[in-house]
Amino acid sequence: MKRFSGKIGVEQGTRVLFSDFANDGVMWAGDGPREVRQAQTFSEPFAVAPMVMVSISMWDMDHKTNSRADISAENITESGFEIVFRTWSDTRVARIRADWMALGPLRDDDEWDVV
């Protein structure tokens, strides 16, 4: 986690979501709607749920079918989120790597509440 002015945090990462060509997995051998979810935990929690951006940084798809892909961040909380990749119809996806970045306010050690 990188801190800016002690109050804003930025964290980034990369993750291979699957390599289905190696074992004839559903993304490579299947058809119709398919989805993969991967949980990602931040190195330290944000003060509130941050803004998260996800992108595909590597894709390996069959050239004989249309390339259909949807990637997003869902279930974003202070401590993490899910990377969600979806495809559909006859698209054959061998593997996907996703890069992500989260930006949001951090807890300040000088701020505390007495209950």
Rank of each mutant, 00 (worst) to 15 (best):
residue 46 F to C: 08
residue 27 M to F: 15
residue 57 S to K: 07
residue 50 P to Y: 08
residue 44 E to L: 01
residue 57 S to D: 09
residue 22 A to E: 10
residue 56 I to W: 02
residue 57 S to W: 04
residue 44 E to Q: 09
residue 28 W to E: 01
residue 21 F to Y: 11
residue 17 L to S: 01
residue 31 D to W: 08
residue 44 E to R: 13
residue 62 D to L: 05
residue 53 M to K: 13
residue 25 G to N: 06
residue 55 S to R: 14
residue 43 S to L: 10
residue 52 V to L: 08
residue 34 R to F: 04
residue 60 D to L: 10
residue 11 E to F: 03
residue 37 R to D: 02
residue 32 G to C: 06
residue 58 M to W: 01
residue 65 T to A: 08
residue 56 I to E: 10
residue 43 S to Q: 12
residue 21 F to D: 05
residue 27 M to R: 00
residue 37 R to H: 09
residue 66 N to F: 07
residue 49 A to C: 08
residue 32 G to P: 06
residue 9 G to D: 00
residue 40 Q to L: 13
residue 33 P to G: 08
residue 61 M to C: 13
residue 25 G to D: 01
residue 64 K to V: 01
residue 54 V to P: 00
residue 7 K to T: 08
residue 53 M to P: 00
residue 40 Q to A: 09
residue 19 S to C: 02
residue 6 G to D: 02
residue 59 W to E: 15
residue 39 A to I: 10
residue 55 S to I: 14
residue 10 V to Q: 08
residue 46 F to Q: 04
residue 49 A to E: 02
residue 36 V to S: 09
residue 32 G to T: 03
residue 26 V to G: 00
residue 12 Q to H: 10
residue 5 S to R: 14
residue 25 G to P: 00
residue 15 R to A: 10
residue 18 F to E: 00
residue 53 M to Y: 07
residue 9 G to F: 04
residue 62 D to W: 06
residue 46 F to M: 06
residue 57 S to Y: 01
residue 21 F to P: 00
residue 18 F to D: 03
residue 62 D to R: 07
residue 58 M to V: 11
residue 32 G to R: 03
residue 41 T to W: 08
residue 65 T to S: 07
residue 52 V to K: 06
residue 12 Q to G: 12
residue 30 G to A: 05
residue 51 M to V: 12
residue 59 W to Q: 15
residue 44 E to S: 12
residue 47 A to Y: 05
residue 44 E to T: 04
residue 68 R to H: 10
residue 41 T to A: 14
residue 47 A to R: 13
residue 45 P to R: 14
residue 46 F to T: 12
residue 58 M to H: 13
residue 16 V to I: 13
residue 10 V to W: 01
residue 28 W to S: 06
residue 49 A to I: 11
residue 51 M to W: 03
residue 60 D to T: 13
residue 61 M to R: 07
residue 37 R to S: 09
residue 37 R to V: 06
residue 36 V to M: 11
residue 64 K to P: 00
residue 60 D to M: 07
residue 6 G to Y: 06
residue 7 K to P: 00
residue 27 M to T: 03
residue 9 G to M: 04
residue 15 R to I: 15
residue 39 A to S: 13
residue 40 Q to G: 00
residue 24 D to M: 03
residue 23 N to Q: 07
residue 38 Q to A: 15
residue 29 A to K: 14
residue 9 G to L: 10
residue 11 E to I: 14
residue 46 F to H: 06
residue 21 F to Q: 04
residue 5 S to W: 05
residue 68 R to G: 05
residue 64 K to Q: 13
residue 14 T to S: 15
residue 46 F to R: 04
residue 9 G to I: 12
